[in-house]
Nucleic acid binder design. Structure first.
Lengths: 183, 183
DNA sequence: ACCTGAACACCGTTCAAGT
DNA sequence: ACCTGAACACCGTTCAAGT
C-alpha cells in the first residue's frame, strides 16, 4: 500500500475495480463491499478508485447489471409461455446466488443497464408472438419482473426449505403466465 | 444539547425515539434516518438512544412493523377472494407512502413483528374459508406478500404513471387470486 | 436506570499535490 | 491521466463516568 509514491501508476482499470468488487461481494457480502475495502484489495489508496468509477452508486449499478449477463436467454422462436417461464426461472436462480443484491435491484426500481434492457426486449418479443402487445405487454413484463425479484428476495434464509420455495415460485409464475397468455 | 450534565435525565422514552425516527423518515427520507439525527431531534447525545433501543436494526424493525398497523383489515366473514384483494391493495397503498422502506422489508425477508403476524393470520383465515389450507395456503400467502411488496418497490418514480401502475398491480393480483382460489 | 463526554473504528468523497 | 497524502464531514457503537 505505502509502496508507491504520488505519480506512480498502479495499472488500475475499470474492469479490475469491478472484478474486485464482485469478489468482495462473493466472499464477504454486501456490507463488506466498501470503497475502502475494494481499494485495499487492489492495493491502492481509497481515492484512486475515483479515477475509474464516478462513485459507489455507479459501481454498484454496474455490478447489478453485470449479474444479469448470467441469465440464460430463451429461444426467441420457441413457445412463448415456455420461454417466459424459462427466463424468469433462470433470473431467479441468478439472483438467488447473491441475495444481498436483491434489495438493491428493488431500490433502483429494477435495474437499468444494457443487460437488463436486452432481457426485457427478448421477453417483449415472446409476448408479441403470443399476441400480447403494447400496454398489455408492458404491464405483463412489469408483473413478471416484480414477482421474480420479489421472490428471489424472500427466497433464502426463510423458514421454508429451498425446494418448497422453488415450488411456490413456480406455481405463482404459472398462475401469472396463464393470466398473461390465456389458453 | 450541551444544556444537560451527566446524570440529568432527558425524559426519553422508547415511544419518543420511535416517533422521532418516523418523523425523520417522513421529512427527509431513509438516508437521513441516522441514530445521530434521531438523537439531535430529541436533543440528546447520540448514545442516549441505546438506553431505549438495542441498536439501529432493532429501531428499524419496529418502524417497519409499525407501518403495517395502518393496513385496513378485511371482514373475516366476507368473500375470501375479495378480502384478500382488499388487504393486498391496502398494504400496497401503505407501503407506497414510504417507498424508501420497501427494500428493507425485502432485506429482512418480509417483516417479523406483531402487526405482520396478525395480517398473515387474517389472510390464512380467509383462505381456509375458501378451502385452501396447509402447505397450499402458506405457499399462496408467500406469493401474495412477495408480489405486493415487490410492486410497491417498483411502484414509484418509474416511467409509468401512478394509475397505470395501479392497474398493472390489480391485474396481476387478480391473476394470482384466480390461481389460488379457482372458480 | 438514564444520560453525558469522549473515544474507537469505521465510512464516502474532495482537494492539492506529484509524475 | 492516474495515483498518493491528508483531510473533511460524517457514521454506529462502546466505555467510563456522573446522578
Amino acid at each position: 500500500m505505502g509502496t508507491r509514491n504520488p505519480g506512480q501508476r498502479a495499472g488500475l482499470t475499470r474492469g479490475a475495480v469491478l472484478a474486485a468488487a464482485n469478489e468482495l461481494l462473493a466472499e464477504r457480502g454486501l456490507a463488506a463491499l466498501t470503497m475502502r475495502a475494494v481499494a485495499t484489495r487492489l492495493d491502492v489508496a481509497p481515492n484512486a478508485l475515483y479515477s475509474h468509477v464516478a462513485n459507489k452508486t455507479a459501481l454498484l449499478d454496474e455490478v447489478l447489471d453485470e449479474r444479469l449477463a448470467l441469465v440464460t436467454e430463451p429461444d426467441p422462436d420457441g413457445d412463448p409461455a415456455a420461454g417466459l417461464h424459462a427466463v424468469m426461472t433462470s433470473t431467479r436462480a441468478v439472483l438467488l446466488d447473491r441475495p444481498d443484491l436483491v434489495p438493491l435491484y428493488l431500490a433502483r426500481q429494477g435495474a437499468r443497464g444494457p443487460h437488463a434492457q436486452r432481457l426485457g426486449e427478448v421477453m417483449l418479443g415472446l409476448m408479441d408472438r403470443a399476441g400480447v402487445t403494447g400496454g398489455d405487454a408492458r404491464e405483463a413484463l412489469r408483473v413478471l419482473i416484480v414477482y421474480t425479484i420479489g421472490f428471489a428476495a424472500l427466497g433464502t434464509g426463510g423458514p421454508l426449505a429451498a425446494d418448497e420455495t422453488a415450488r411456490s415460485f413456480d406455481r405463482g409464475l404459472r398462475w401469472l403466465l396463464t393470466g398473461i397468455i390465456p389458453g
